[in-house]
Amino acid sequence: MNKVVIIDDEPQVRRLLSMVLKSRNYEVHEAEDGPSGLQHIAFLRPDAVLLDLGLPAMDGLSVLKRLREWSEVPVLILSVRDEEALKVEALEAGADDYVTKPFGTAELLARLAVIQRRCFTRQHPEITAGNLTLNLLHHEASLAGDRLKLTPTEFSLLHTLAEHAGRIVTFGQIIRRVWPAQLSDQSEALRVHISHLRRKLGTTGPQIINEPAIGYRLIDS
């Protein structure tokens, strides 16, 4: 049974989320603030954490930063709208994804499932996302068995997104991965390559979804 720790200061939100998750066979533990949440995580070693960004006293971002000093547990951020900068900060500080309040249960459960399916390990030479397969050994990509002609930059871009399939990857994270040595602003190049990639993936392959002001997400069509 998967263990989840919920850190939210609203008792009703905690109660409801815990009901929803228990009905999906999760073992749920609740914490009302950052320090007790961190304690729960340290003792229980959960499989995932739901973390509200708007906590009193020690805010969600500080909790996350503290947590990432000693744990790699998948973290799903719960946030309200119009907090894009804060979401990006949380994602870059090591959060795995976010949902925006008010969110639907289906969305929450889907995100939670995706972040628990950890990144494909580096040792594994093949990544699949829907009908897309990336062979890292030969730098080859194929869509439903047909080989895709990609430039090295496109391959590296698709690799970054596919490695985190279903999860948001911030613009900054992509740029640092694909253009590690470039100091100049690569955001324009990123959009151009994404546009090319989308054309090559067509409508049958996984879709690259843009989340305004945050990043891209590769989803199975």
């Binding site: 939100v13 409801l16 929803v20 009905s23 309200v80 119009d82 309040k101 008010p102 969110f103 249960t105």
Partner: peptide, 18 residues
Amino acid sequence: VSHELKTPITIIRTALDG
């Protein structure tokens, strides 16, 4: 204010989904 207003709506939506 936005937090205060959105929290009850989230709760209602989650409960309805349930």
